[in-house]
Write a protein that binds this DNA or RNA. Structure first.
Lengths: 262, 262
DNA sequence: TCAGTTCTATTTGTATACAATCTATTCACG
DNA sequence: CGTGAATAGATTGTATACAAATAGAACTGA
């Protein structure tokens, strides 16, 4: 961060450079607007605003100690990404994610991620990709090896899951696809991060899918990779729906429960 | 436009209300920013800017006789939609669409539109939807009935094609899906509008697909609808690739050929 | 002549001021 | 007492002014 690397020409659309789901990693925001966007994004995804809460520009500006200009830019971006709803002359509000819409999103993820799996298989993994994938798979195995789910295992497995999915998307190397999937991940409860990694049995089966996906991709079997991912996503969708029905409205999110405005 | 309909509460995110591909229809832009966005979008999609041309804020502001503020908002939106590239402190430029990227986009469209077809079949068409679909199908039949392609038929068929695809997406009624597909349509050469509807034989086959898709959807056969649409998209992709290879770089776009900067 | 540096002009990013729109209260009238 | 219009306050949209960064020209020195 300190070493200003003179002229590291950013190759492609800078606003999309950051890793897929990881919005809280050491992101380098060159612009105030970008920095504000990141802050607001994580705040929303962590559920720090109530669903459908209005986001007033001046209030946010005060809170973050900037002018309205970068705030407006950030809100604009986030609404384009699908986190916020916008009505002209009336401002922005946190997009409500009801069960139905969540299902819609999973349908789209199913289509997109299965495409990613197929493309990854067709294009093939580099040695380093393959190595990293195996390492992550083993991380998952280790967490599961106890025969039950330890408390610290949950968060760990969430990270494993995220890294594996991201790896596949990266290998697919299709910018449009990557962008489209990111939009799905940005929806408050759609991210796998928000699955309550609770049931050992389910997680074991899910990780089994990961292993098989890896097999299929290494074998360059696009058809199988695609089918596996479709099945995998359907399983995740169903699992999340069960979790939601069980918890019933309450706090299905991992983070602090949504608190009413402000 | 004159009859200010008092308070027609815009239900959902207003920036996404306009019909899918039709960006030049009687769109009601309530805000200057929105109006500028529409103008710039169509200008770019019509190829009025050279590929990779820089879009300078002040220049555009002068041209459109507005301040930089709505211009910036518009550029922001268009870059989020994928039409422009953005580099902090260096501005926006028209995103280059090479053959490879075009292929990527079609892969995504294949995944998304086949999902749309399946969902449409599963959810079923309303009577009015069905009626309109049939009418549009007949419009296509009429154009093809001459046994060859008349000059005015090309544009007409492009419209028919667009209406049919949009109808399916509408019936699928999945907001996230709609948004994702729209992004694909917004890429300069990816829109079917830019296919040179040239070969009678190909168009006939393509329209045959439309008929079969309609059948499958009416029969509530999601699997068949999905397969048909996948095949259909693959065919479109291949056709466009051939067109592009034949025309080789020159003007594959329907509108006026891209002219250098300014 | 060429590499590197400094300086200037252009362009983008941010802050602020003003205009237009909407929300909610108040008040008049039936 | 309830309905609707007028009005005041708050909030968003647009324009402008200023700050920061970048790109390119001119210059220096080998």
């Amino acid at each position: 961060m300190t070493s200003s690397k003179t002229k590291t020409a950013r190759h492609n659309s800078a606003s999309k450079n950051r890793a897929l789901g990881l919005s809280r990693d050491g992101t380098e925001a060159v612009t105030l607007s970008q920095s504000v966007t990141e802050k607001l994004r994580t705040a929303i995804l962590e559920g720090r605003f109530a669903s459908e809460a209005r986001l007033q520009e001046e209030l946010l500006a005060e809170t973050l100690a900037v002018s309205r200009t970068p705030i407006r830019a950030a809100l604009h971006t986030l609404s384009n990404e699908g986190l916020l709803d916008y009505i002209p002359n009336r401002g922005y509000s946190v997009r409500k994610v009801d069960t139905e819409r969540l299902g819609d999103i999973f349908d789209v993820r199913e289509a997109l991620e299965s495409l990613a799996a197929r493309l990854a298989a067709e294009k093939g993994m580099s040695d380093s990709d393959q190595e990293e994938f195996m390492r992550t798979l083993k991380d998952g195995d280790r967490i599961l090896s106890k025969g039950k789910l330890l408390p610290e295992g949950r968060e760990g497995f969430s990270a494993v899951n995220e890294r594996l999915h991201e790896a596949i998307i990266r290998v697919a190397s299709n910018q449009m696809l990557t962008d489209a999937i990111r939009v799905c991940y940005n929806i408050p409860m759609s991210s796998d991060r928000n699955v309550l990694w609770r049931s050992y049995e389910w997680i074991r089966r899910s990780h089994d899918d990961h292993h098989r996906l890896f097999e299929a991709i290494c074998a360059r079997d696009g058809g199988r990779a695609e089918r596996l991912m479709r099945e995998h996503m359907l399983s995740v969708k169903q699992h999340m729906r069960e979790q939601l029905d069980a918890g019933e409205g309450a706090g299905a999110a991992a983070g602090p429960a949504p608190r009413p405005g402000r």
